[in-house]
């Protein structure tokens, strides 16, 4: 079973056991990055990464990188 989210403008399938923002970040291998997460146009604070994720949610994630 999977659910489909809109991730940074692309349709993205994730396992349905990925239930919240924290688990999504782990699924995407982004959990140890410095990042800003937006769920349905609202920024999710770090202490609210247990916010549930549902089918068709719109999610934007921007992580910081060093290079340039």
């Amino acid at each position: 079973m999977t659910i489909t989210i809109d991730l940074n403008g692309n349709s993205h399938e994730i396992p349905s056991d990925v239930g919240n923002v924290q688990q999504l970040l782990e699924n995407l291998n982004l959990a140890d990055r410095i990042l800003i997460v937006e769920l349905n146009k609202e920024i999710v604070p770090k202490d609210a990464y247990d916010t549930p994720i549902k089918d068709r949610d719109q999610i934007e994630i921007i992580h910081f990188v060093g290079g340039g």
Partner: peptide, 15 residues
């Protein structure tokens, strides 16, 4: 806005 682009995957974000 904080904006990101990945030219390989086509992902974009603007927060």
């Amino acid at each position: 806005k904080l904006e990101s682009t990945d030219l390989w995957t086509g992902e974009r974000a603007s927060i």
